[in-house]
Computed example of a mutant assay.
Amino acid sequence: MSAGAATPAATETGTGPTPAIHVRGLRRVFGDRAVLDGLDLDVPRGEFLALLGASGTGKTTLLRILGALDHPDDGTVLVPRRRTIVFQEPRLVPNKRVLANVTVAMPRGEATRAVGLRALAEVGLDSHARAWPATLSGGEAQRVALARALVREPELLLLDEPFAALDALTRLRMQDLVGELCAAHRPAVLLVTHDVDEAIRLADRVTVLRGGALVRDERVTVPRPRDAADPAFRALRDRLLVDLGVRRPGAGADPTIREGELT
């Protein structure tokens, strides 16, 4: 299908030189409200994009459309065939052991088992292959979900606030793990998050969704590893908080707001 042709549903691309995500004029309407209204977005293969926005602005709606869990009312949506999603909840199958959760719906056999064990080793859980999901901590369960997503070698990885339910320390460790794994596997990544610091820490680009369209699309030039005390980090954070309506232009930090996080 031509990249310029409008379609009411997400269309899969092949493996040619097209972007991993190509969106033009995307509209999604609920009742009389256009949650996404003429949205345009391109994400090259191998790029990590963070999507910020207040609750109800359509971030998860966009992710669900890209993952073929929802449909647009108008516009063009081109995505790769191989794409996977990690949600805020791990969504593990309770009556399957960890390894079986990682390789669920894949062909049975020694080759699949070996691939699954390698994926678990990448997230530091190869010793938990025979464990039941109920015995895992929240961070461990989310690592299993990440292994399940990456074992399929996706061209596009969609992350829907995957760290939101974790404690602060586990959240930082998971951010580091996701950054390392995405650098190794090189899928295109779309991370939906409310956490401004998280977006800056992980992403190559940061976008802000407001009023159904992107009001900011900026490349993150802060050198890695990224330090929240870096003036460039703080300056970008301030710009994003202004875009999100959390801070007035030129205003200092608001002591009533947890730094970096949008609620």
Rank of each mutant, 00 (worst) to 15 (best):
T60C: 03
G46D: 06
N95L: 13
L62V: 12
P72T: 10
V123C: 00
Q88D: 06
L136Q: 03
L125K: 02
E161V: 00
E47D: 08
D160F: 04
W132Q: 08
A149V: 03
L125W: 07
V79D: 09
A149Q: 00
V79A: 02
E153A: 09
L157K: 05
A134Q: 09
A147P: 05
P72H: 12
G38P: 03
P94A: 11
L63C: 08
A134W: 15
E153S: 09
P80M: 15
V102H: 12
S55P: 08
R97P: 04
L125M: 05
L158T: 04
A114V: 10
R28F: 10
T135R: 10
A149I: 01
L159F: 03
R113E: 15
A111W: 04
R118V: 13
L169I: 13
L158G: 11
D73L: 15
R81P: 05
P107S: 11
L117V: 06
L41T: 05
L66S: 01
A68H: 15
A34W: 13
L49F: 15
S137Q: 04
P80W: 15
E89T: 13
T60P: 07
T61Q: 08
V98C: 00
M106I: 10
T112S: 09
L156Y: 03
L117D: 02
V86G: 07
A121V: 05
A121C: 07
V98N: 00
Q88A: 13
V93C: 11
V29H: 09
T57Y: 14
L39S: 01
L146R: 13
E155M: 02
I85S: 14
D70T: 04
G38I: 08
A134V: 11
M106H: 05
A164Q: 13
T103Q: 02
L159K: 08
P162F: 14
A119Q: 06
G38F: 11
V77Y: 11
T170V: 06
A54T: 05
P80S: 13
D167V: 10
E161T: 02
R91G: 08
L158E: 09
L99G: 07
V151D: 01
L92F: 01
L157E: 02
V115F: 14
A105L: 14
P133T: 12
D40V: 08
I85G: 07
R143P: 03
V98G: 01
E110S: 14
A68L: 15
R33G: 10
L51Q: 04
V86M: 14
T84P: 06
L156H: 00
D167Q: 03
K59A: 08
R143W: 08
L92C: 04
L78E: 10
Q142V: 03
L156P: 00
L51R: 11
V43L: 10
L136K: 03
V123R: 02
R130L: 08
D40Q: 09
N95F: 15
D126H: 11
G31A: 03
L66K: 13
G46C: 02
K96Y: 15
G138A: 05
L120K: 10
P133E: 07
A111F: 08
P80D: 12
F48L: 04
V79L: 04
G58E: 11
S127G: 12
A164P: 01
G56D: 02
T135Q: 06
A168R: 12
L156V: 06
